Simulated assay, not measured.
Amino acid sequence: MFRYTLTALVLFTASTAISSENIADKYPGSLLYDEPVEVIPGVWSAIGATAPPTYENSGHNNNLSFIVTGDGVVVINGSAAYALAKALHDEIKRITDQPVKLVFNENGQGHATLGNSYWAEQGVPIVAHVDAAHEVEENGGPNLQAMKGYNRDKAEGTTVQVPTETFSDEYIVEMGDFRIEARHLGPAHSPGDIVVWLPEQSLVISGDMAFHERMLPIFADTITADWLETWENEFEALGATYVIPGHGHPTNMAQVRRYTRDYLIYLRGKIRDHIDAGGELTDAYYVDQTPYTHLDTFEELAKKNAGRVFEQMEWE
């Protein structure tokens, strides 16, 4: 199996000018958008498309990671559909004969949780933050219907499966050669966001705490001031050498800082200037975001992000 080193992946993310939205499925023999790569020894990730979910990418537009510990496999993200989770499991079986013993949901969104139904069928415990589990209970049905809309026949077998175990602050696993710390660092991108921290390897699977190749989305319940506080006080404090983000290739802290923390500060600054000048919401959508036009999903998200930050900052 062809493997990339982390160094090669970092160089790729720094130098490529090709939008992932314009690249066809990289792994046509599987529902996965791309073949899993070994980032560091024992830690693998199937890198999803940095584009909206479509039938062509099977909803694999986030990263599906797993850790081969020596005493079992830990999967990070249930995936967007039953069939997609099975495709990931097929790849895991090609790599190791160790059984999957645990699945983490990085948050309560559909592309992290709708594949839970496959893992539950295998008898694998599914762990998430309590707020993410609540999101699945509240929004799992609508998320499933939306996924069926684009995935059509690829949605077959998918049902809403809530996590089987929850936690509030941290969930620590000692398995094989790894100490695996699932942590809720604080408010960030969406309710129940967690990171999976490997302290001995200095690697963090950041989930949607950190973005870099695609523009981050700001939802109605994304409080950007809180996200920045969590970043400054908790995420940076990890001192991670390696970062596997929720979307995009593995990279380093400097890269995700530039396109997550720095973007949030930049956009909030532009909106603050707009508000101080007496600007209204109708014009806030058009504040200058040109330094970020090269990011995938810019066209889909930039105006929405500006509008939502205006709505928040108007009352700060």
Rank of each mutant, 00 (worst) to 15 (best):
T158A: 07
T158L: 04
T159S: 07
T159W: 00
T159A: 07
V160L: 04
Q161L: 03
Q161D: 00
V162K: 00
V162M: 00
P163Q: 05
P163C: 10
T164M: 01
T164F: 03
T164E: 00
T164S: 11
T166L: 00
T166A: 01
F167Q: 02
S168Q: 04
S168P: 00
D169M: 00
E170F: 00
Y171C: 02
Y171D: 01
Y171N: 02
E174I: 08
M175C: 12
M175K: 04
G176Q: 06
G176L: 07
G176M: 06
D177Y: 01
F178G: 06
F178I: 04
R179H: 10
R179K: 14
I180H: 07
E181C: 08
E181N: 05
R183Y: 00
H184Y: 15
L185P: 05
L185N: 04
G186V: 02
G186W: 01
G186Q: 02
A188Y: 09
A188H: 08
S190L: 11
S190N: 09
G192M: 11
G192H: 09
D193Q: 10
I194P: 03
W197A: 02
L198D: 09
L198G: 12
E200L: 09
E200I: 08
Q201T: 10
S202N: 13
S202T: 11
L203A: 14
L203E: 06
V204A: 15
V204R: 07
I205P: 02
G207F: 12
G207K: 08
D208E: 15
H212F: 13
H212I: 11
E213G: 13
L216P: 06
I218F: 02
I218D: 02
F219A: 15
F219C: 09
F219L: 13
F219Q: 08
A220V: 14
A220Y: 08
D221H: 11
I223M: 07
T224G: 08
T224H: 03
A225Y: 11
D226M: 14
D226S: 15
W227M: 08
W227I: 04
W227Q: 04
L228C: 07
L228D: 01
E229M: 12
T230F: 05
E232H: 07
E232S: 10
N233A: 15
E234L: 05
F235K: 04
F235E: 04
F235D: 05
E236F: 14
E236N: 11
E236I: 13
